[in-house]
Amino acid sequence: MTNNDVKRALKAGFPIFIGYVPPAIAFGILAKACEITLLECFLFSAVVFAGASQFIALNLLMTGMGPGGIILTTLLVNFRHFLMSAYLSTRIGKMSKRYVFFLAFGVTDEVFSVLSFTKRRLSKTFVFILQLSAYTGWVTGTVAGYVMGGFLPEILTKSMGIALYSLLLAILLPELKTSVKALCLTIASAGLNTFLIKLDVLPSGWNIIVCILVIASIGSFFISKQQGEKVYG
């Protein structure tokens, strides 16, 4: 049983690993160009562990923005994970609080997505091996990028850029095959996000928060209606 969990977690974690390495290398290269030390570069990825916000932080640092502004921006950019953790908290059942401290650290977009669409009960083993694969890819990629620069052929790095999107689509497909409602909500969310990004009025990271709030509210209306029909019909 546990052995199967290990296998499943490695299978699901490997694509995240592959997907995290190229942006992590890019982050390491950028960090070196910004003249921060290898230790600082490593710490960025090892203790913050949040892709987009790390790039934004380096860019802001270069513009001369102070730490207060950068930290506030980071809070805004990463706040979407609050909603993702809120969902995950309904899935982990009786996992003890001690483990929640580790689990929460590794809630990235991709880890959240894989965990969400894993239908079976989420075991500690599955969750932690999945997160460890993601974390390993991100941290080793960062250090490798800093130390070795762009050591992978450019064309390979470029094509690996598709991995995370391919992963998201692959885990979503079984859901779309069985639920018209899921299909409609996904398309609505994609459409709303495209619109909001074109509109370009919200701070970075908030387009997706609005998408989640709006689309999940609409979705919850349909779920409770369905349940009502089942109960009373």
Partner: peptide, 8 residues
């Protein structure tokens, strides 16, 4: 509904 709302 959060996962489906987020993934699109």
């Amino acid at each position: 509904c959060i996962p489906v709302a987020a993934i699109g």
